[in-house]
Design a protein around this nucleic acid. Sequence first.
DNA 1: ATGGTTGGTGTCCAA
Length: 259
Amino acid sequence: MKIATFNINGIKARAEALVDWLREAEPDVVCLQEIKATDEAFPHELFDGLGYTIATHGQKSFNGVAILSRLGLEDVTRGLPGDEGDEQARWIEATVVGKRAVRICGLYLPNGNPAPGPKYDYKLAWMERMRARATALLATEEPFVLAGDYNVIPQDEDAAKPEAWREDALALPESRAAFRRILNLGLTDAFRARVRGPGHYTFWDYQAGAWPRNNGIRIDHLLLSPQAADLLRDAGIDKEIRRREKPSDHVPVWIDLDA
DNA sequence: ATGGTTGGTGTCCAA
């Protein structure tokens, strides 16, 4: 089962590029972030004939997540538990059944800038709610995947210029500690289980020639439950699509599970 | 320190 995460930065602006990538990469499951569209505005018709079932949790203008699956979607739920007043569309779950059933959680973790401030407080509180949800899922002892844009640079080796991110919400010690608290529940960073060392990025800013300078950061992650980690066969980053016309500022990250 | 770019349905905000 090939599972990918891709911050698409606007589904309406990127639908054609997404279809091209789906045809090439042939993922079974894709978690999308920043669709920047309501459920009604998602261009389902552009994906007809590709064989994907689509579940969205959209919002006008900002945020918005979706899951695409060519193995079907069961028990879809929307929203991260823990704050009934939270209006931001950043979390969606579904179960996908291949050889095994895998619970897929697609997430768009808050950016948190500027820090300190209310946006940073929201980010840290959201991460604590995510930790609680992961804890509940671990109790099921079933395979699950937390896939998305985490807006966290886990370590200095995950940035081309770590010093440029010192004061940024993506790399502040509290952000890294909150990420580690989730990881330390017993989850596995799938990419890091397969590839070690610096120089592996998933995001390059549109500004200041970040892409031609390879000034990137690794902020899109797939965390695996112990039962999912046992099934991990491979992981990778589809870096090359960043050089295409009108790309997203993120690229897809994928895993292959024996499931 | 600053500036640079993109998408949305915007006369600026979020990233």
